[in-house]
Design a protein around this nucleic acid. Structure first.
Lengths: 207, 207
DNA sequence: GCATTAGTGCACTGTTGGGTAGAGTAGATG
DNA sequence: CATCTACTCTACCCAACAGTGCACTAATGC
C-alpha cells in the first residue's frame, strides 16, 4: 500500500497539468481541446484520459492548482496584515504588496477565467472566493477592528473598512486588468496603491 | 432606394435579437447554438442566417445593443454628475444612483459576458469601456476638478479621485456581482453606496 | 532479466453545432 | 389579383471534438 507512485505517472501528470493551466487560462474551457493540451504537454491524448479521466476533471485539477496559488498569495498577505502596528507607516507598503499580488501576479488571469466559467462551474468560483479574497478581507477587517480598539482608527464597520481599503488600493487597476490583457505598468500600480492607502487614512485615521 | 423595410424582416430581426441577448448573457458565446436562439425567438434557424449572416455577427449585434443600453445608463449619470453643486448634500444620492445603475441594473451580466469573451472579442470589450464606464469616470473627474477649483474639495488628481469615488461606492458589490449570480439586496447596495460617499467626503472634502 | 505497468499512435464512434439547399407556404406590395 | 419576397421545414454536409479500443513499445522495479 505504501508504494511510491510510478515516476512516469508523476511526470505525465505534472506536464499535463502545467499545459492545461496555461491553455485554459488563455482560451477558456471551450476554447481548449484535450488534444491540444496533450500536444502542449508532449504527451498522448490517451495518457491525459488515463490520468485525469475526462475533460471536466482535468479542468477542475488545473483550477484547483491555480486557486491554491492564489491562496498562498493570500496567506502571505494575511500574515503581514496581522502584524500591522503603526498604521501610518506600514499601510502604504501593505497596500503596495496587496496590489502587486493581485494586479501584477497570477491572480487576474484566474479571475477572468472564473468569471467566464461562472455558469458552468459555480462551485469553483465559490471555492476561490472563500480561499483567497475572503481570507484577505477577513484579516483586514480583524486588523482594523483591533486598531480601532487601540484608538488609532475610527471604524464603524470593520468589514466595510476592509472593502474600502482593498478597493481604494487596487479597485481601478483590478477592473482594468479584468477587461484587458494589456498589463498595467508596475510602477503605476504601486503608486495607485500608495495613493489609495493615503486616502484611506485621510478618511479613517483618528485625528 | 428609399423603400420601407419589409415588416416581416423587422419583426424577425427584433425577435431574434431579444432572444440572442438573453441567451448569450446566460450561457456565453459557446454555450449558445444558433438553433437555440432561433427556437427561443420562435423563428426558423434559416431566418437567423438570412438576417444576421453568421453567429459572430449575431453576437456582435446582440452585444452592440447591450452596450448601447449601458451607454444610456452612463449618459443619465453623466448628466446628474455635471449638475453637481452642493457636494455634501448631493453626493450620497449620486452614489446611490451610480450603484443602482451598475449593480442592480443590466450592466453586471454584460460585464460578466464581456470578461468571458475577452479573448475572442477584445474590440467589443474596448468599445464597452469607452462608451460606458469611461464616460462616467471622465464626468466624475471633470466635476471633481470643478469643485476643487471652487474650494469645496481637495483633489490632487481628478482622475484618481473619480476612481476612488466609484470604487468606494460600489467596488465590493460589483465584485461580488461579477463572481456570483446571487443578487445583492438593493437596500444593502444603496447603504454601501451612501457609506462609500461618506468615506469619500471624509477624505476629499475641505475641512 | 522478467513481469508489470504506463505511454504511444492510430483508427474509430458518436455527438454537436455551424452553415447550406431547396421546395413549399404565407404574407406583403402594387 | 398577381407577383415578389421572406419565412419555414426537413434534410443534409462537414468539421471539431470528447472519449474509446487496441496492438505495440518502453520504462520501472523486483
Amino acid at each position: 500500500m505504501a508504494r511510491e507512485e510510478d515516476p512516469r505517472i508523476a511526470r505525465s501528470r505534472a506536464l499535463i497539468l502545467d499545459a492545461a493551466i496555461e491553455a485554459f487560462h488563455e482560451f477558456g474551457y471551450d476554447g481548449v481541446s484535450v488534444e491540444i493540451v496533450a500536444e502542449r504537454a508532449g504527451v498522448a491524448k490517451r495518457t491525459v484520459y488515463n490520468i485525469y479521466g475526462d475533460k471536466e476533471a482535468l479542468f477542475r485539477a488545473a483550477l484547483g492548482r491555480s486557486i491554491a496559488t492564489a491562496e498562498q498569495f493570500a496567506s502571505l498577505l494575511t500574515e503581514a496584515i496581522e502584524e500591522l502596528e503603526d498604521v501610518r507607516l506600514e499601510l502604504p507598503r501593505l497596500a503596495e504588496r496587496l496590489a502587486e499580488a493581485v494586479v501584477l501576479g497570477p491572480v487576474l488571469p484566474l479571475r477572468r477565467l472564473l468569471v467566464g466559467e461562472l455558469a458552468r462551474f459555480p462551485d469553483l468560483v465559490a471555492q476561490y472566493r472563500e480561499r483567497a479574497p475572503d481570507t484577505v478581507l477577513r484579516a483586514l477587517a480583524g486588523a482594523f477592528e483591533r486598531l480601532a480598539e487601540r484608538g488609532l482608527l475610527e471604524v464603524r464597520s470593520p468589514t466595510l473598512a476592509a472593502e474600502h481599503f482593498a478597493f481604494l488600493v487596487m479597485g481601478a487597476d483590478m477592473d482594468r486588468g479584468m477587461f484587458g490583457t494589456r498589463i498595467e505598468p508596475p510602477a503605476r500600480v504601486r503608486a495607485h496603491a500608495r495613493e489609495g492607502a493615503r486616502v484611506f487614512l485621510a478618511a479613517y485615521a483618528r485625528r
